[in-house]
Design a protein around this nucleic acid. Structure first.
Lengths: 210, 210
DNA sequence: TAGATTGTTAATCGATTAACAATC
DNA sequence: TAGATTGTTAATCGATTAACAATC
């Protein structure tokens, strides 16, 4: 797992490589090539080989890559060859969808609890959870050594929630709130905002000449 | 709106600029600067000025930018100074959350219908919609001149759904299915996969030395 | 005017691509 | 062996940053 200064954009592609390898595995494929992976992902084979070269040598000349081996190597590199403990803040419609999303558990992200500040929701069942009070956020994180959190609260509440999470030592935030968060060194944030994505595409399909 | 070959990465930042300008507007601010915008977004003021310079001159030396004016210019540039007609495919938990998401309408994305292939769901209410049969997809798109679609179906169904949408002339797809879609020239796709985002962050917070 | 901030240039930095020797 | 594909190098391409003249 030799690596020190791999470009973030390369790291961001690894999960997609991992995903396609999992599909290949499910299809019963044993061997693949940078060419095939590139074709499936719409990128060049050169980019895939270059990206992988940051971490080591995983293939065989003339043959390609062992799907299972490369898959497992990528899992190691990404640190997803183990379980991660996460929580979800926000039990609205989006929180409900995330609480039911099977792929988190399937990929080793163990969602341990769901929090909300609405008295009408606290104590009620939500999927396999019982919604907890946001008042219990700090104690729960500390006691369970939570490392990641999904933020699915309104934009107006997101900054305070993020601050509290970070105060308790949560190191990765995935925020669905449409707001940019300032976080200290050592804490990672990723954003999911479908509206900005639609706007991005609107630029191109807008007037035909772009 | 002079522009021909603006880097995609620049286009992708404009919606975020637009978002922060809307917040400034809501706060009653009339003037801002590239410095302030950069501070709010965690990027350099130089990058903001450079990005905007692809499209024209929007500020005044010594003063900065008129918030309302720049906001409206960005809306024009992104082609979001008008309504866009969209549909949603998939009425599961995620589809339910998206059907209720107010920010689409707030930002000019008019969701006209929700489709599913499950007989138990078809005809049932979902937010302000009544779930339509996927059998009616083609006729609905054609009759209503749908331009965008949100895909919230299982991965196994996503390729076929995308193909049908594209066949009917839909030009922008926002897919929540964890699979890469091959689309023809002129069609845009964006993906939202929270699992890849968590995996991306896991890389950094994994072992402390990255 | 003095102070501030833009828009732009040039330099730096970083990522992608093409090509090919190595080698399975 | 002949054919195929990797890993890597060097060249190209593209993005970001720093700096500053222009100017409000």
């Amino acid at each position: 797992m030799a690596s020190f200064n791999v470009p973030d954009i390369v790291v961001g592609r690894l999960p997609v490589y991992l995903r396609v390898l999992n599909y290949l595995l499910a299809e019963g494929r044993q061997i693949t090539s940078s060419q095939e992976l590139g074709d499936r992902l719409g990128i060049s084979s050169a980019q895939i080989r270059k990206d992988l070269s940051h971490f080591g040598e995983f293939g065989k000349q003339g043959t390609g890559y062992d799907v299972l081996f490369l898959r497992d190597q990528l899992k190691q590199i990404l640190n997803v060859d183990r379980e991660w403990k996460a929580i979800l803040i926000g039990a609205g419609d989006l929180g409900n969808a995330l609480a039911h999303y099977q792929r988190f558990a399937d990929n080793g992200f163990d969602m341990l609890a769901v929090f909300d500040n609405d008295p009408d929701k606290i104590g009620k069942p939500l999927g396999r959870y019982t919604v907890k009070s946001i008042d219990d956020l700090e104690s729960f994180i500390t006691e369970n050594q939570i490392e990641m959190a999904l933020i699915a609260v309104p934009a107006a509440a997101a900054r305070e929630v993020a601050a509290r999470l970070i105060d308790c030592g949560v190191k990765a935030l995935l925020s669905y709130a449409p707001i940019t968060l300032a976080v200290p060194q050592g804490v990672r944030v990723q954003y999911i905002d479908p509206v900005t994505r639609l706007q991005h595409m609107a630029y191109y399909i807008g007037s035909g000449d772009k």
